Amino acid sequence: MIRVMLADDEAMVRAGVRAILGTDDEIEVVAEAADGVEAVEAVRRHRPDVAVLDIRMPRMDGLAAGVEIRRTVPETAVVVLTTFSEDAYIARALGDGASGFLLKSGDPRELIAGLKAVADGAAYLSPKVAQRVIAELSAGAGGGAMARTAAAKEQVAVLTPRELDVLGLVGAGLSNAEIAARLYLVEGTVKAYVSAILQRLGVKNRVQAAIVAYEAGLVS
């Protein structure tokens, strides 16, 4: 069972999201919050697998709440669910360690798929958000892109061949279970590899690791 904490300052939005998640027997909403401070407190109290946060909330916004959750309850994955898809929000959320960024305008099935992917250790971006991230990575075929590629290749040079294999599959969006099946490993071993990779690359989560993998040419 995937245990979820849902935070949004609009009660009708929370009811709608709860109803969507209630259609899947593998997901349970264990707590709700109407602002960022309540969200952090609810996560500390209930220790859910995933915290779903709106961005614009009173007292503490969702991005700040996500930072506090990652700092105090790192085992809880953070997913941003919002109507705002500005590049600054995306960059800040992913830079601060969010494992997912979803848009309220997306398909409800996308929300369920995203939460399941994140709970399984993968990262998940709304297709529209993923397009923005890829476009940003691909922008500027000149020196900027070349410098990022060179830096990423130098960054991954510290990894072992097996870690490079795992990183490439992380970059391709595979979950720990999918990577284990692909490389004929047990899932616990993959989790250990991923943890070591994040530490050695100096990144906060799988999204940032995936970006490094993309820039280093490990993802076709």
Rank of each mutant, 00 (worst) to 15 (best):
V78K: 09
S138G: 03
Y124T: 00
I90A: 11
E26F: 09
A196F: 01
I90P: 04
R45G: 04
Q155P: 00
R70H: 11
L102K: 12
T82A: 02
A145V: 06
L174H: 13
D96W: 02
D35M: 14
Q131A: 15
G36W: 05
G202M: 06
N176W: 03
S85R: 11
I2N: 01
V203K: 11
Y89C: 10
A151L: 14
L94A: 09
V133W: 04
D35L: 10
V13A: 11
L111P: 03
S99D: 02
L218I: 02
A33L: 12
V79L: 06
L53Y: 05
F101E: 10
A39C: 06
V73E: 14
D165F: 01
V4E: 12
K204F: 01
K116C: 02
D8M: 04
E187C: 02
E32T: 07
Y193M: 06
A42L: 02
S126M: 00
A123K: 01
G173M: 10
A39K: 08
L21Q: 07
D87L: 07
T83E: 07
G202R: 08
A31W: 07
A150I: 05
V118C: 13
P74A: 09
V133A: 14
R56Q: 06
A130V: 05
M1I: 09
I179Q: 07
R148Y: 02
V118N: 08
I112V: 15
E110Y: 06
R132H: 02
R200T: 03
G106V: 00
R56G: 01
G100E: 07
L198R: 15
P127W: 05
L21C: 05
L63M: 09
S220P: 10
Y124P: 00
G97S: 09
G97K: 15
A34C: 08
E38I: 03
T83G: 08
A51C: 13
A152W: 11
S175F: 04
M12E: 07
D8K: 14
R3D: 04
L103F: 13
I20S: 05
